[in-house]
């Protein structure tokens, strides 16, 4: 058990009819780290994300997120036994994510995500995308619309603060000059960055990124790595990352979990994982005992 974990996934199983997409998966993500979830196509990575973020209801297992101190983990079993979905502790609450609907996972537990197929609001401007992400905060500031309709200054102030915050993120991802252009008009790599910035604008404690480097060129990929590292180091957000591409993972992640056919086959630091024959076997698509032969053949 990792005491400083922010997220714990325990015995997670997800079935679609007869297909077992994820089977009895347990892992933890540490606070302030980048945890990578890797595995070949169809391994069930996105399904794990969908379970964490409330888009799918897991068939079995529990997913817990801790926004308080490490001692709050001791309450986990009591919380599970109760019928509620969260429990307050010093500094923050403990949440059982599988009991929460998708938007509450973001609004209360503060887990934000991006999608494997980019889902920006294409017809809205870059800035508007980042303002929608600050919806809940602005909603309160607008007195649930009432103050806003009346044109009270409370809301105007909150809105300019939100715009400032959005501008800061745009500065960081290098899109400040395109703030007033439609999001659908941006090049692919920029859209990926914008989706990350948008997720960050919800003030998450855990950011889940589904293949953020997919389709990026090497330069963009490097920029992305820098962005993710700065999120880890400069904000209070921990990162959970799905990646297909081992090289990206190996450069930035602190901790790697490997999934194959819905089952966890390896879990540890990047060195451990890199040298794990099971992982290599899974990636090369061969049996474990053939790894060495094949690896030398392909020149690994």
């Amino acid at each position: 058990m990792i005491p400083d974990a922010i997220l714990r996934v325990e015995h997670l199983t997800m079935r679609f009819g007869g297909l077992v997409a994820v089977h009895d998966l347990s892992f933890a993500a540490r606070r302030g780290e980048i945890t990578a979830l890797i595995g070949p196509n169809g391994a069930g990575k996105t399904t794990v994300f969908n379970c964490i973020t409330g888009f799918y209801k897991p068939t079995e297992g529990r997913i817990a997120l801790n926004r308080g101190g490490p001692s709050l983990w001791n309450e986990l079993d009591a919380l599970t036994a109760s019928s509620v979905r969260s429990r307050k502790g010093p500094g923050g609450s403990l949440y059982l994510l599988e009991r929460m609907s998708d938007y509450l996972v973001t609004m209360d537990a503060r887990v934000a995500r991006t999608f494997q197929n980019i889902r920006l609001f294409r017809g809205m401007t870059v800035l508007e995308n980042l303002l929608v992400a600050q919806h809940n905060k602005l909603m309160i500031a607008s007195g649930f619309t009432l103050f806003g309709i009346l044109g009270l200054p409370v809301y105007a102030r909150a809105e300019s603060a939100a715009i400032e915050r959005a501008a800061a993120w745009l500065e960081k991802i290098g899109l400040i000059d395109r703030a007033d252009d439609p999001a659908g008009d941006l090049p692919y790599g920029a859209q990926r960055r914008l989706e990350i910035a948008r997720a960050m604008c919800t003030d998450p404690v855990l950011l889940c990124l589904d293949e953020p480097a997919a389709g990026l060129n090497p330069r963009e990929s490097t920029e992305l790595n820098e962005l993710l590292l700065s999120i880890r180091d400069e904000t209070d957000t921990s990162v959970l990352l799905i990646e297909h591409d081992m090289s990206v993972v190996m450069q930035i992640s602190d901790h790697v979990v490997v999934l194959d056919y819905g089952v966890k086959i390896s879990d540890g630091s990047r060195e451990d994982v890199r040298n794990d024959p099971k992982v290599i076997a899974a990636y090369l698509g061969v049996e474990e005992d053939e790894v060495e032969a094949v690896a030398s053949e392909v020149g690994l």
């Binding site: 973020t53 973001t106 609004m107 889902r119 920006l120 609001f121 992400a133 997720a199």
Partner: peptide, 10 residues
């Protein structure tokens, strides 16, 4: 524009 993205933003 995108309902699923909305839900993912809380």
């Amino acid at each position: 524009e995108d309902e699923i993205a909305c839900r993912s933003l809380g």
